[in-house]
Each structure stands twice: as C-alpha cells, then as structure tokens.
Design a protein around this nucleic acid. Structure first.
Lengths: 237, 237
DNA sequence: CCGTCATGCGTACAGTGTGCGCACGATAGG
DNA sequence: CCTATCGTGCGCACACTGTACGCATGACGG
C-alpha cells in the first residue's frame, strides 16, 4: 500500500484539533512576540520559536502577519501604547514634556529592544500609538505657543531616543551577564579604568558607583533638564 | 584508482595560488566590509558575500576575525576614525563641541549603518577611535572648567546619536526607493498628510519642502543649539 | 447536503554564521 | 637536500533562519 508512506501512523488516531486553545490571532501573536523579545532580546525571536510558544507551526503565523518585519512593527507600536500621554494645555509645559519623556524612557527600559528597533526604523513606523505619542508631544508645544514646535519635538525625541537606546543596550548587556547591575559594574571597573588610562579626560567617569540605577536616573534627568532649559530660552515671554 | 573520486580533475592542473593578490588581512577585510555596508546596508552583509568580494571563501575570513560581531565592531571603530576631533582648550568651547557634533553627524550620514549599530551596542564597543572621540568631547568640556563634564558628554552624545540614527534610517529608506530625497518626499506627502489628519498637532510638519537636505541640516542645527544653550546656562561665568 | 472559505501545517528552498579537518606554500632545523 | 612545523585558505557540514506553496481540515452559508 503506497498510503503507508505517509508519516501519519493511522488516520483514525488523528487528534481532532484542540479547539480549547484560543486559536491564533494577530493580537495573541503580537503579545507573545513582545514577551519573547522582553525575555530574550531581538535576535532570539524567530518565527519557529514564536509559533512553538503558541502551539502552532512557524508558517501558520503568516496567516495573520505578512512578514516578520511587519510583526516587529506591530510589536513596537503595541509597546508604544504603554507610554503615558500628559494632557496638553496644562499650565506647565516644561513639566508635561518632562513627564512624556520620562514615560517614554520607562517603557523603553521595560522593553529593552524597542528603542533600538525604533531608531533603526526611523519614520517608517507609523502605527497609531506611535503617532499618538508624537502628536501628544506636538500638542504640548503648540498649545503653549511655542515658536518652532517641530524643532522642539525632534530635539526632545532625539535626546530621549538616543539616551534610551544606549541605556537599553547597557541593560541588555548586564542582563546577559547574569549579574546585578552593581556586580557587573564592579567587575568591569578595573578594565575600564585601564582603558581610560590612555584617555585622561575620561577617567572621571570611572569612579565607584554605589547605586547605578540612581546614577542612570540622574544622568537622564540632567540631560532632560539641559534640553528643556535650551528650549525655554526659545519660548516667548 | 580511488584517487579519481577526488573533485580535483588532475593534480597537475592545479593553479599554484595566485600570489599577486594581496592576500587576506584584517584591515583589507574590514575595509571591504565597510564598502559593502555603505553600499547595501547592514542586512546585506554576509560572510559569504564578503569572502567572495575578496576572492576568498567565507570561512577563510575567520582566520583574521573571530566572529561577525567582532568584524562589525572593527568596522564601527574604523569609521569612527573619520570623525574630526577639534583641539581642546580653544577659546570657544561652544563652537568646538558643535564642530565635533557636526563631524559625528557627517560621518554617520556617510555610513548610514553605523549609528544604528553603535546605538544597539551601547558601551560594549571600546575601540580606540571611539574612545578617542569620547575623550576628545570630554576634554572640550573639562578644559573649560565645565562643572559636570560627564553629564554634558552624555547629553550631547545622546542627542547626536539619536538624531543621526533617525536621519540615517530615513536616508536608507530613501536610498532603497531609488528616488531622490525630494521625489520621495513628494510621493509620500499625500499619505503622510492623510495619516496626520487624525493628529492635528502634527499637521504642521507635513508642508511642502523645497530642499529636504537643507531642512535636515537646519533641524540638526536647531537641536544642537538647544542643547548647547542648555549647557551654557550651567557654565559658570 | 454540498460548495466555499478561512485557517493551520508539512515540506521545501535559498540563505545564514561558523566549527572541523584537510591541503598547500613557506620557513626553519638537521 | 630532506623533513618537520606552521600559518593560511578552503570544502564540507550542521543547525538554523524567513517564507512560498499547496494540501487538509473544520466551520459556515446556500
């Protein structure tokens, strides 16, 4: 019988589809992709592994998602939905912009892959949540009569994306080491100091840090203050 | 004769190694890798294609380079060597920092892959040229008695990296379209305007741009001015 | 009851990074 | 001069990637 060449041992033993599973859906796929990205980073996400986590084959995902790049775009936008948007028109534009920036950083650090992907994609991602964030930032400036709102948006966004990308990359490296951030810093310090010996003006950056998290927070706040001060000088009285 | 099973048709017909070729070397590999990255972007670089361009097999490269990641690190640092470093201690720290920032942006746009790779790697890249650039920036601040030089460095770097990454991603998208930047902008404008209809505060950003290159230059200069102004308020008189 | 259709999956293809071991030319030691 | 060693390049192989194609299955509307 040529039918015996089929890999199925018997037609009668077929499992009649596990219908209790919520089946595949675009939102479920995106949700699980984000979970994988958060846990293992961007290069650990493959369509096969993602399918396996959803009790599905790799190619089944393509019924709901055109391509892996599209999936990444959806994941990025989904994560951007976590950014808190301050209500525009408040009395203190400075505080509102700062809150938006902090919220962006916080979600970028919660999902350490998103800043890098977002930066590399540039303006190609036009998802609703990302657009809403940009628009919110714009509203914060326009509604207070800022002269060049688009320059202000790009300036704030560039600073925040640049800082968050660098920070997220650092956190990824730390996470891969399996140590706490403080341990990792302590272990790297001698090598860094030796490398900085050739570059005396950098040496001041390699002092002992008792609380690396607080230091990163302070660095971000410092730069944010610088940017906002610079913008404040361009705000008419 | 079992020797006939060898793929070599005859031992006597063997080419005696083309010794005129400059042979493989780490610097030649890195140089050619940069050329490929500039021409076709980061996802078009494969060890096999790179080997082929050097008249070599893929695995031959591994005699000179431990891994592809290491090759990328070498390429990034090599490119960072193109950044012009202003002499520290000049009378106008503002102009010097601005020159360093402009030079960084210029090389990042000449090699549109480098900003993204650099951002994603964070502080993991400690090549000499990158260290020299950081140190130069540090020297520009320390030698003028700036109070928090490391905060200033991180602020400027974050802004410049963020802006350059976004710009480079945009340029990559434009290049892949095969059109000029002006054509590409014109073609995208209707879609962008329609998308911005839902986001009225963004609408002002989608006006006709006669000269996109000049507009990007102006945007960069605006943000750079903002950052430097913010830093200037922290400089003691 | 019988198409039609959306959905999942098995197979396959071209391509990736890279470990392994062999073959070769040059070079040094007897 | 012969021989042992060594650096270099390469062929092969492995595990893995994204994704195109076509079939099987069950749900659903006529």
């Amino acid at each position: 019988m040529p039918a015996a060449s089929k890999p199925v041992p018997s037609v009668w033993a077929r499992t009649p589809r596990e219908a209790d599973q919520p089946a595949l859906s675009r939102t479920a796929i995106v949700r699980e992709a984000i979970a994988m990205l958060d846990a293992e980073g961007v290069e650990a996400l493959s369509m096969r592994k993602l399918g396996a986590r959803l009790n599905a084959g790799a190619t089944s995902l393509y019924r709901h998602v055109a391509t892996k790049d599209e999936l990444m775009e959806l994941a990025v936008d989904e994560v951007c939905g976590e950014i808190a948007l301050p209500a525009p028109g408040g009395p203190d534009w400075r505080a509102d912009v700062a809150d938006a920036a902090r919220s962006f950083r916080a979600t970028a650090l919660r999902h350490p892959w998103v800043a890098g992907v977002l930066g590399q994609a540039g303006l190609a991602y036009l998802g609703p949540n990302l657009m809403a964030f940009s628009n919110n930032l714009a509203a914060l400036f326009t509604q207070t009569g800022f002269p060049q709102p688009h320059g202000a948006i790009d300036t704030v966004l560039s600073y925040v994306i640049g800082m968050s990308t660098t920070e997220a990359a650092w956190l990824t490296t730390v996470a891969r080491s399996g140590e706490t951030e403080a341990e990792f810093v302590a272990r790297l310090m001698p090598a860094a100091r030796e490398a900085a010996a050739q570059h005396p003006d950098l040496a001041g950056g390699y002092v002992d840090v008792p609380d690396p998290v607080a230091l990163r927070d302070a660095k971000f706040e410092y730069g944010l203050g610088v940017v906002l001060d610079g913008l404040a000088t361009r705000m008419p009285a």
